[in-house]
Design a protein around this nucleic acid. Sequence first.
RNA 1: GCGAAGGUGGUGGAAUUGGUAGACACGCUAGACUAAGGAUCUAGUGGCGCGAGCUGUGAGGGUUCGAGUCCCUCCCUUCGCACCA
Length: 898
Amino acid sequence: MASAGRRTSVAADMTYDFRAIEARWQSYWDEHETFRAELDPDRPKYYVLDMFPYPSGDGLHVGHPEGYTATDIVARYKRMRGFNVLHPMGWDAFGLPAEQYAIKTGTHPATRTAECIQNFKRQLKMLGFSYDWAREIDTTSPAYVKWTQWIFLQIWGSWYDHTEGRARPIAELPIPPAVAAMGDAEVNRYRDEHRLAYMHDAPVNWCPTLRVVLANEEVAEHVEQGHEVVRRPMRQWMLRITAYAERLLADLDGLEWPASVIEMQRNWIGRSEGAEVEFQVVGIKGEEGTLTVFTTRPDTLFGATYMVLAPEHPLVDQITTDAQRSAVKAYVERTAHRSERERQAEAAEGAKTGAFTGAFARNPVNGREIPIWISDYVLMGYGTGAIMAVPGHDTRDHAFAKAMGLEIVEVVGGGTAPIADEAFVGEGVAVNSGFISGLTTAAAKERMIDHLEREGIGRRRVTYKLRDWLFSRQRYWGEPFPLIHRPDGEVAPVAVDDLPVTLPVIEDFGPSESGEPPLAKAREWVELADGSLRETNTMPQWAGSCWYYLRFMDPRNDGAAFSKEAADYWLPVDLYIGGAEHAVLHLLYARFWHKVLFDLGHVSTVEPFHKLVNQGMILGATYHPITPRRDERGLPVVFLPDQIEAIGGDRFAVKGSGEEVKVQWDKMSKSRGNVINPDDVIREYGADTMRLYEMFMGPLEQSAPWQPEGVSGCYRFLQRVYRLVFDERPEGDVVRELAEGAGSERQRRLLHRTIDQVGERIDRLSFNTAISSMMIFVKELALLDEPIAREVIGAFLILLSPFAPHLAEELWRALGNPKSLALEPWPAVDPALLIEATWTLVVQVGGKKRAELQVPQGAEKDAVIALALAAEDVQRHVGDKTPRRVIYVPGKLVNVVL
RNA sequence: GCGAAGGUGGUGGAAUUGGUAGACACGCUAGACUAAGGAUCUAGUGGCGCGAGCUGUGAGGGUUCGAGUCCCUCCCUUCGCACCA
């Protein structure tokens, strides 16, 4: 008991028995399958989805339920609005923690995962979310893995037809006659090279600590955690996401997503427009000596005074002169051995290193011979791995030219500083540039590209930062690839009827140092009777989350991943809520898979998630001495909330010593010790209070601190609601006498205003202000001091029920309703009741508010102005002066300008 | 450096389109009920001023009868990207 011995809680003297009430309604919903969703073409659908959790060993923290409560409110609201709501939950259960746990303890990851799922599910159930639990899925279950593998085979079985702009079955790939003539093996090879899933032998990001290959997207996160990541050549499975770069970018336009996420995806895809230009290496004739570069500034071609190749560029070896060979070799090796971290640190400083190859190339527009260098500031993975360097108009080239003493030429006029001191990267007018001199940057680009294309030495080109997705992992706890390597080297798919390929039972889950996956050790599993070998890599954790929203539509289908009928009905996801940490990876990968499935005719929307919202973080408190100090072990002194008491305002002191400390709000994390456990909150206040508080804290998208006093405020509100219906007596609570019928006009006006506001605010996901409306309702209802009408309180309970469903159900039943209110219709607003008999007129004199008057509805402009001018508070400021002007805003104000 | 979001009382936050700044809640103050209150209820609560009033939404300027909201300049915070040619 976390709170033993403490009596800080308002709920200590529990006035309504939330424990019994919440347990009762949770089992009622279970037994009656209240939230069961069935496909029904006659009703409008609404698909509201949470980012499903990884069931970690730590269980839920209060951050999880924030998004889940928001979606639950929307789900419950939409049901009452007549929508057929799909609101599912499941488990993204493959992943490193269970595997690390297995390596440490020997417990099979499946066992551990099952335990964690059970705990998560228990916690979610306690919060009363209206999930259709019959649709629960677990990405690690064979029934799910089967279809993850099936989708992989769809991708593997496709190629991208750039002419038609879509993926097509590999069987439809045109085979060039020259390839066909070379026989079946060559045809197969040709096909394999064009598949959307292909094997690639290239340097990959290898993490020696974890013994795993990482996707480019994952490197930063691991480096941040202090893991070393090195480049190392390995044969890996790649997914051809780059084929979709343009569509992934263009289709962002139709989405209702946060600007920041759209922007991050745009940056990640990184489209740039420019041109390819061919340079000829002096002394090497023909294609062999052609260096192609990509530039976004073809207008600066006359200013290209040298070239730079990435150290890994294939031509480096060929063009290096004997005199420079040792220097070049040394630099190439140095680059290969440096970690990503060292390289990035150097980049941040702007320091430039490199080596001269001894070779020269000819600038195709002015014929000048320019030196060819190598440097790691040119990346093999972007563009062509080679650049033309224009030090006058590129900061990096400028720094390199300065460091190496290379020539700097001005070819764009308009800079302020001398070109020798600073590169001018802005737009201007071309100078010293032959046939484009005098043209503005935009025009010069066009003219240059025309020229290059006419001469056949370059072309217009669009490049993307996005790289293909490294899809294989040397891990045990993931989906095995459903592929077989034949003795002749051919790769074959596992037949659909033989899916899923399940994981073998093994003892040692650890990957080897060499990077060989743990599955390779299961010889009996790997080796097939005909001498074929199974693929031993597994898929990354993203695989399961790439399509779980599709499986939810038809989760028990044995014959397909999902039916076409279900997909046509439920897609797209109307509202998707989750953390901002998935802004790029998960959302980009899922969109990619969705588009492949679209191309192959399995889904009929181009995008999976229509509206996306990122919930903010809930921050936890730690307390620090006013002047920081360290304890005897050298660690900073930190106090946790239960060691602290408030001493007025926002000041805090340590209990016992009385030392004043300051509060600090951070993302909750186990290591900081500032985590709030939902179990404790629910035990003390109940799930309804917890849900209400999390929504009342502030806008959903915004981060906010967890303040225990705020929780009790919400609890007090629910108590007041309880007392609207129940009279608390020592011998037991009894239902109050309620007025029959629709209620007094005052009550109905109050109610309808509240109905109007709450509905509109839920639509806007402005839950904190919706709750505020309900608080005002309860307060004003009490002030009316008249018996409350049954219909009024009943309608209010419906408004309350998305937020505090247990209490709403309980009170609904107490009013004599036999059935759950979950499927009651949302009350209709009577517009007539929203119009008051009078409205409040604000009178300003010279823009300052001077009076407030009640004006009858429908009063004429002149009458209102006369009334305003006659008011005493107005007269005092106007006096005998004649107003120069009177502004009249109907229904709002009168402003008298003197 | 580039990009995005944001800066409103002691605190979390309200204020759809320019029209009462600070709703609602916490905290605080006073009172009621009480054996008691850390329960409950009532009232008050941006700052300055006895008051009429003045002042106030990161800073400065502008547009307007009127600006938290629009425009310009700047400062700060958070997040993302960062040798991408």
